[in-house]
Design a protein around this nucleic acid. Structure first.
Lengths: 220, 220
DNA sequence: CTAATGATCTAAAGATTGTTAGATTATTCT
DNA sequence: AGAATAATCTAACAATCTTTAGATCATTAG
């Protein structure tokens, strides 16, 4: 015989488990860490530096992500390397972000303001961009750090980290359109790259999507 | 001139907005309310009763969901009717649940234990089930309350709420397979319906998916 | 009009998190 | 071995959230 209370307890248990994922996603800093890990594996202090928090705090947040089984660790020498558990985590990051953009006007406004400065690329389908890049009609620049490029990058993209860009302008073609991308729509490196390129007379556009949005986030 | 701090503040703002969605999804009861609303619009006290919480608490949780713009309200007489803001909310509920099932062993175990009792339906593709139902080779039963059936239901499904099932067994065919579904994998009404039907000698199976999983959640 | 119902608001207690500091561990470098 | 580095653990305080109770408001029924 199944009682009402039995059913209640079972249900509570199920929703509690799902809420563990929600809890992992309810802190801005944890979301930022997830996005960083979508670019490739990183050590705790790399993550702390890039998210502008202390290593202690990063460690505490990563612990939360680990108990929710969203990230995995591996010890290498005196470093601990974190990575997302699998591609489903990257997909979830894209999904929650897109729901947030769908529902929250404030977020849409902030993004529009951000994008209005330099040339935002018209939403174009992926295949046609890849085709153009393959034929050499546009140059796709990956302006993230080299290790992130090494972990995964868009097809036919060239690595040119934002910090090096200023000194490597000579490598770029003058007539062609240059498309810069970085970690995704919340990362401002591609925006700054486009700003710099335009000041130098290049025809530059920003592609707001990164590897997570293209579904090619690196997983071991 | 853009400063480092500027960039930081902009980023923090973006992640904070996304975290508002995470916060809405970090309480088990709020998740349950979202799932209930995926079945169709409901008043506060309907929601409170079905989620086994007080109306005050339900109201407080719904307030949170409303500030995250995941649900919308409409006043009708002395009732306030809640509904999910759009289909993207139902999709998100399915997405977070599926990530939880992917990552959390505890959840998979709990679901297996739940499912092992009655006959769980083999994961079958949707079109083939609809075809069988259309041809009348199986009977698909929607065992949710009638108002949820009215809001949206699977193609060719017949409404037969769990509470009425016992008294309406005569309406069911003896030779055919009966497929029962309810609100989704975390709802136990279909499980109980299958248990009852099998005791009565019917060939019954549970379809663990509901309208949210089929992408036909009702939205106004 | 008055009473009852459905829902929200406010305030407060209790529980859970976020954040920081200090101590501790494991590993590498010298 | 001793110092330095990377990371975690523990404990504590601050901040936030959950939950309940009491008061309040709007609407309907009598």
């Amino acid at each position: 015989m199944r009682t009402m209370n039995d059913t209640r307890r079972t249900k509570d248990l199920l929703y509690e488990q799902v809420a563990r994922i929600g809890k992992a996603a309810c802190s801005p800093k944890r979301l930022e860490l997830i996005e960083l890990l979508c670019q490739g594996e990183k050590t705790v202090d790399m993550l702390a530096r890039e998210a502008s928090i202390s290593m202690k705090l990063a460690s505490a947040h990563l612990r939360e992500l680990r108990t929710a089984h969203l990230v995995e660790t591996e010890k290498q020498g005196k470093h601990v390397i974190y990575r997302i558990a699998n591609r489903a985590v990257a997909d979830f990051w894209v999904a929650i972000r897109s729901l947030a953009e769908d529902r929250l006007v404030e977020l849409r406004l902030a993004l529009e303001q951000m994008a209005s400065h330099p040339g935002e690329m018209a939403p174009q389908d992926r295949n046609s961009l890849v085709k153009l890049a393959k034929k050499g009609e546009v140059v796709v620049l990956d302006v993230r750090p080299t290790n992130e490029y090494a972990a995964a990058h868009l097809p036919f993209a060239r690595s040119m980290p934002l910090e090096e860009l200023k000194n490597r302008l000579a490598e770029l073609p003058v007539g062609k359109t240059i498309v810069a991308y970085c970690r995704g729509p919340y990362c401002l490196m591609a925006r700054d790259a486009v700003e710099l390129l335009r000041q130098q007379g290049f025809d530059a556009l920003r592609l707001p999507e990164g590897v997570a949005e293209w579904g090619i986030a690196p997983v071991r």
